[in-house]
């Protein structure tokens, strides 16, 4: 995504954070009661692509997607749309999205949760890039001696 808003950024980080990581970084305070507007639910999203990568759209197939919406005590709606089928991950991501919208908590949550996750995800990405780059190839064309 190009030039994401702060909220788009944290939602994308949360969508990529496995449940174990979320649980390790985030413990809901016991007195925080979230209202479940849309219980965690797994379904599909049709994945679209473009012919030739840039042309007209076509449907490639489906992928699993889990969504959840909660309302925080402060009244913010927290949304989660995460690839895969982990309902607990979606629930935690939705709660965090709601809490992150509270300006009083945002800075703390960003530095405690979102930034560490973002660093991990970007490191994993760089490692994958490096692996691919190790197979970068320069082919030589040999002149065939036929003349």
């Amino acid at each position: 995504m190009q030039n994401p808003t702060p909220r788009q950024h944290w939602m994308s980080i949360l969508a990529r954070a496995p449940r174990a990581q979320l649980c390790a970084l985030y413990r809901p305070e016991p007195d925080t009661e979230f209202e479940l507007i849309r219980a965690p639910e797994t379904g599909l999203t049709q994945v679209r692509a473009r012919s030739g990568g840039t042309g007209a759209q076509f449907n490639l197939g489906d992928m699993t997607l889990t969504r959840c919406v909660v309302r925080s005590p402060a009244g913010h709606l927290g949304y989660a749309f995460v690839a895969g089928r982990d309902r607990q991950q979606a629930r935690l991501a939705a709660e965090l999205d709601a809490l992150l919208q509270e300006s009083a908590r945002q800075t703390q949550l960003l530095s405690d949760i979102i930034e560490p996750l973002a660093r991990q995800q970007s490191a994993a990405r760089s490692a994958r890039d490096a692996e691919a780059d190790s197979t970068k190839v320069d082919f030589f064309t040999l002149v065939r001696g036929e003349d």
């Binding site: 379904g43 599909l44 999203t45 049709q46 692509a49 990568g53 890039d129 692996e131 691919a132």
Partner: peptide
């Protein structure tokens, strides 16, 4: 697949921005 409801359609994939392994 038929037991899952379809929530939405994605925006078209941007394969130009792919993080390539190959």
């Amino acid at each position: 697949r038929t037991t899952l409801s379809r929530f939405c359609s994605s925006l078209p994939l941007d394969t130009t921005a792919m993080q390539v392994n190959r």
